[in-house]
């Protein structure tokens, strides 16, 4: 449970979410951010719940899936580790667009998506859901409270979580090789 939770925190990377929007405008739209968090959490939990049908659809077994998932998570983590956070975007005027942006691509990261299926298949959707909910709420909070957070610290945290995701990805890939 704890490892899954840490895995979702590393792959969602709430610090990167906190730096996704520029800090110079002072709009205050908690509903839009909440909507984005709910959408992202719902999608990820749904993916975890549908893990077995997804693997059947792909015609691959869990070991093969975890090998690929590990690679995706490690590459995404490496990108954060090496390049740091993505350039911040201007906050959109429309509420719906802001919510959509919070959900994708800010919280629905490639690593989180593939991890949701992996954890769902291996440990069940409930265990996945706990990690998912915690990680996306942290991401949403980070985005909403971004102006009160020191930029340099958050940028460093992005790289640190990227490093954690890289290590996690390697572990999952190796485990995938060993899974029958």
């Amino acid at each position: 449970m704890i490892i899954a939770l840490l895995g979702f925190v590393a792959t969602v990377n709430p610090a990167a979410a906190a730096l996704a929007l520029v800090r110079d405008r002072r709009t205050d739209r908690p509903r839009s951010v909440t909507a984005g968090v709910v959408v992202a959490a719902t999608v990820l939990v749904a993916l975890a719940a549908a893990a077995d049908p997804i693997l059947d659809l792909l015609d691959i077994n869990l070991g093969t899936y975890r090998l690929g998932a590990g690679v995706v998570i490690a590459v995404a983590g490496l990108r954060w580790l090496v390049a740091g956070p993505a350039p911040a975007c201007e906050e959109p005027d429309e509420d719906r667009r802001l919510a959509g942006f919070v959900a994708f691509p800010v919280l629905l990261t490639p690593g989180a998506v593939v991890l949701a299926v992996s954890v769902g298949a291996e440990h069940g959707w409930i265990e996945a859901a706990v990690g998912i909910v915690v990680a996306v709420i942290l991401g949403g909070l980070g985005l909403y409270l971004r102006r009160s957070m020191p930029h340099l610290f958050m940028a460093g945290l992005v790289r640190m979580l990227g490093a954690a995701a890289t290590v996690l990805g390697v572990i999952i890939a190796v485990d995938g090789v060993r899974t029958l």
Binding site: A86, C89, E90, P92, R97, L98, F101, F104, P105
Partner: peptide, 18 residues
């Protein structure tokens, strides 16, 4: 960068990666 551009880029990256 605006939101639309970043979202589009992410979508393309996801499609290529998948």
């Amino acid at each position: 960068m605006n939101v639309r551009r970043r979202t589009t880029r992410a979508l393309v990256a996801w499609a290529v990666g998948a």
